Simulated scan of single mutants.
Amino acid sequence: MSQHYVAIATYTAKPDTADRVAQRLPLLAEASRQEEGNISYSIARDLERPNVFTIVEVYRDEEAFTAHRESAHFASIGKMQIIPMLESRVVVGYSGDGVIE
């Protein structure tokens, strides 16, 4: 058993930007998975609303998540490329307790 931090983000892309968001999210995921405190990072695209994406991120602790949000790749890919193409963005943090494999 171990403590960890889970962030679940829901990104709703503007209808005309959904495919571009879908192309950039894997770039952000790949860079994020290389972070020292990252345990996992997954992206899912809503089958009925293809402009909605759910991102599930697991980090060693909240400090690791904060470091992620301050990283150069989050600034360049997330803040500068993806976020401007969104209608909305909701990020909720959770304290996790369990086995992470």
Rank of each mutant, 00 (worst) to 15 (best):
N51C: 02
T12Y: 00
R20T: 15
V21A: 10
A72T: 15
T10W: 03
N38W: 01
P50K: 06
H4F: 15
I55L: 15
S2V: 12
H4S: 14
Q81T: 03
A72F: 04
S32P: 09
R33H: 05
L27G: 02
L47H: 07
V56W: 02
S42R: 11
I77K: 07
R89P: 01
R33P: 03
L47F: 03
R20W: 01
I100F: 14
I8Y: 02
L25M: 12
Y11A: 10
G98P: 14
S95A: 13
R24C: 04
G78N: 07
R45A: 05
P50R: 09
E30W: 02
G98K: 09
A29L: 05
G93I: 08
M1L: 10
I82C: 06
I77T: 09
S71K: 12
E101H: 10
S71M: 06
E62R: 14
T66N: 13
I100T: 12
I77E: 04
Q34R: 11
E48W: 02
K79M: 15
A75F: 04
H68V: 01
V90Y: 06
E30I: 00
R20V: 14
S42P: 00
E57A: 12
F65L: 13
I77G: 05
N38H: 03
G37N: 08
E57H: 12
M1I: 11
Q3K: 13
G96Y: 10
S95Y: 09
R49I: 05
M85Q: 14
Q3F: 06
A72W: 04
G98Q: 11
H73E: 03
G37F: 10
A67P: 03
S42L: 04
Q23G: 02
R20M: 13
T17A: 14
G98R: 13
I77F: 09
Q81S: 00
H4R: 05
R89I: 07
A13P: 12
E63Y: 02
V90W: 00
F53H: 04
V56K: 09
V6S: 10
A13E: 07
E48L: 11
L27W: 02
G93P: 07
T17W: 00
E70G: 11
F74C: 08
S88I: 04
G96A: 10
V21N: 09
M1K: 03
E35G: 04
F53P: 03
I43N: 02
S71V: 11
F53C: 03
S71Q: 06
V58G: 01
E62N: 10
R20K: 15
Y5Q: 13
P50E: 12
K79V: 15
Q81M: 01
E62Y: 01
R49W: 00
L47M: 05
I8G: 01
V21H: 08
D19P: 00
I100G: 01
S32H: 08
K14R: 13
F65V: 04
N38I: 00
V21K: 09
D97C: 08
R24W: 02
Q81P: 00
E62A: 14
Y41G: 05
I43F: 00
N38P: 04
P50S: 05
A64F: 06
A29Q: 15
A29Y: 00
L25V: 08
A44N: 04
E70D: 14
S42V: 12
A31R: 12
R89Y: 11
F74W: 08
H68F: 02
A9L: 14
Y41Q: 05
D19H: 07
